[in-house]
Simulated scan of single mutants.
Amino acid sequence: MLTYLFDPAKLSIQESKVEDDYEFRIHVKEEEQHEAMRDIRHYFAENRVHTDVLFYTHVDHGYQVIVRQDYYVAFVLQLFAHRLLTQVGWTDK
């Protein structure tokens, strides 16, 4: 199982499983985090699979992101690469 940590003073992340996909509700508090989310959105928009990660932007500085199961790890690693997550690791549970 892939686990991750983030700084709750800087953002909030709620993750849930929806059928075969994952839904992330991400609320950012700083402009550089918005830039990171735009970069992540662009990263997935530029590949050949258009249904891998779907982004919905909300007016309250929030994002709803639907991630296909086979792109879950790639999405989490993009969050980590853009410093939205502070730690990522594998656990046996």
Results as ranks from 00 to 15, higher is better:
2 L>V: 05
3 T>K: 15
5 L>K: 12
7 D>H: 07
8 P>F: 07
8 P>W: 07
9 A>K: 15
9 A>F: 15
11 L>W: 06
12 S>A: 11
13 I>N: 02
13 I>P: 01
13 I>V: 12
15 E>K: 13
16 S>E: 15
16 S>H: 09
17 K>V: 13
17 K>Y: 05
18 V>N: 11
18 V>P: 01
18 V>W: 10
18 V>F: 12
20 D>P: 00
21 D>C: 01
22 Y>P: 00
22 Y>W: 07
24 F>H: 02
25 R>C: 10
25 R>A: 13
25 R>I: 14
28 V>Q: 05
29 K>E: 12
29 K>A: 11
31 E>C: 00
31 E>D: 08
32 E>Y: 14
33 Q>N: 03
33 Q>G: 04
34 H>V: 03
34 H>C: 01
35 E>P: 00
37 M>R: 06
38 R>I: 04
39 D>H: 05
39 D>S: 10
40 I>K: 05
42 H>E: 12
42 H>M: 08
42 H>A: 08
43 Y>D: 09
43 Y>S: 06
43 Y>K: 12
43 Y>C: 02
44 F>I: 04
45 A>W: 03
45 A>H: 04
48 R>A: 12
48 R>F: 13
49 V>A: 13
49 V>K: 14
52 D>K: 10
54 L>H: 03
55 F>Q: 02
56 Y>I: 06
56 Y>K: 08
56 Y>D: 07
57 T>H: 05
57 T>F: 07
57 T>Y: 05
58 H>E: 14
59 V>E: 14
60 D>N: 14
61 H>C: 10
61 H>F: 13
62 G>N: 08
62 G>S: 15
63 Y>I: 05
63 Y>W: 15
63 Y>P: 04
65 V>F: 07
66 I>F: 02
68 R>W: 07
69 Q>K: 08
71 Y>E: 10
72 Y>L: 08
73 V>N: 02
76 V>R: 04
76 V>Q: 05
78 Q>V: 01
78 Q>D: 02
79 L>C: 08
79 L>K: 06
81 A>C: 00
81 A>P: 00
83 R>C: 07
84 L>T: 02
84 L>H: 04
84 L>Q: 05
85 L>R: 04
86 T>L: 03
86 T>V: 09
86 T>I: 09
86 T>S: 14
87 Q>Y: 12
87 Q>W: 11
89 G>R: 11
89 G>N: 09
89 G>H: 09
89 G>M: 10
89 G>D: 11
89 G>S: 11
91 T>M: 15
91 T>H: 12
93 K>T: 10
93 K>R: 11
